[in-house]
């Protein structure tokens, strides 16, 4: 929902009135432009989780993901004055994050990698290793373990498909927003998301037929639902 620039200018920059949580992103950033730190804190609370989730699934390294999430938010603060409401605020934020992630991954790929002397199966063809329940049927698949398996599967999707896939699945951006973030054509965005979903399905297929894991998934969802109810 984009407002026109005339409507945008009606935001009173001198004071924040009402509950910050009620203010939309595009108005909050106007307050940040006018030096209101509280408005920035609200933006941080809205975006930190989404950004971290997206970045971690891109770079796989939690420390690096934290660093890049913070860097994104700092850039939002420092360059707040450059934001113009020609695009949605979330699109602007995720464009910054995506550029940072791409640069970091490019830097990484230039660095020489250590090559294992043990022959490994082709990474692209390697399915996610499901937990061995035959060996230890009593052990419960923990959320962390499940998260690790999903992370492993996600990281095996090629980068050019993974970015639009995660922007859609994790951050709920619309096709048009993903188009703006990535600079791709709308048809390309759609087909890349489709291909990434297909690839992801192939990678997690062993997990999808695992009864224990599906029960664990239901438990996690029930817990999340209960927490949401408490809040």
């Amino acid at each position: 929902m984009n407002l026109s620039r005339d409507e945008h200018q009606q935001v009173n920059p001198s004071a924040i009135t009402g509950d910050l949580r009620e203010i939309r992103d595009e108005d909050l950033i106007v307050h940040v432009q006018n030096g209101r730190r509280k408005a920035f804190d609200e933006i941080v609370s809205r975006y930190k989780g989404r950004l971290f989730s997206f970045i971690l699934r891109m770079v796989k390294d939690p420390d690096l993901a934290e660093e890049l999430t913070q860097e994104t938010l700092i850039r939002v603060f420092v360059h707040a004055g450059k934001y113009r409401e020609i695009a949605k605020f979330s699109t602007w934020v995720f464009t910054i994050a995506t550029n940072l992630v791409r640069n970091k991954m490019r830097q990484r790929s230039r660095r020489p990698r250590l090559v294992s002397l043990n022959p490994a199966p082709d990474e692209g063809e390697m399915p996610v290793d499901p937990p061995d329940h035959e060996a230890d049927s009593s052990s419960e698949v923990e959320r962390e373990e499940l998260a690790r398996l999903i992370q492993e599967a996600t990281s095996q999707i090629p980068e050019k498909y993974r970015i639009p896939f995660l922007l859609r699945e994790v951050d709920q951006l619309s096709y048009e927003e993903i188009q703006q973030v990535t600079g791709l054509k709308l048809g390309t965005v759609r087909s890349r998301i489709n291909r990434a979903r297909n690839r992801f399905r192939q990678l997690i297929k062993p997990l999808l037929r695992n009864e224990t894991l599906l029960m664990e998934l239901e438990r996690i969802e029930a817990r999340a639902e209960a927490e949401k109810g408490n809040n």
């Binding site: 989780g49 939690p62 992370q151 998934l217």
Partner: peptide
């Protein structure tokens, strides 16, 4: 797959 991604949000 979508449910799994949502449930394992870091």
């Amino acid at each position: 797959g979508k449910r799994l991604l949502a449930a394992t949000e870091p």
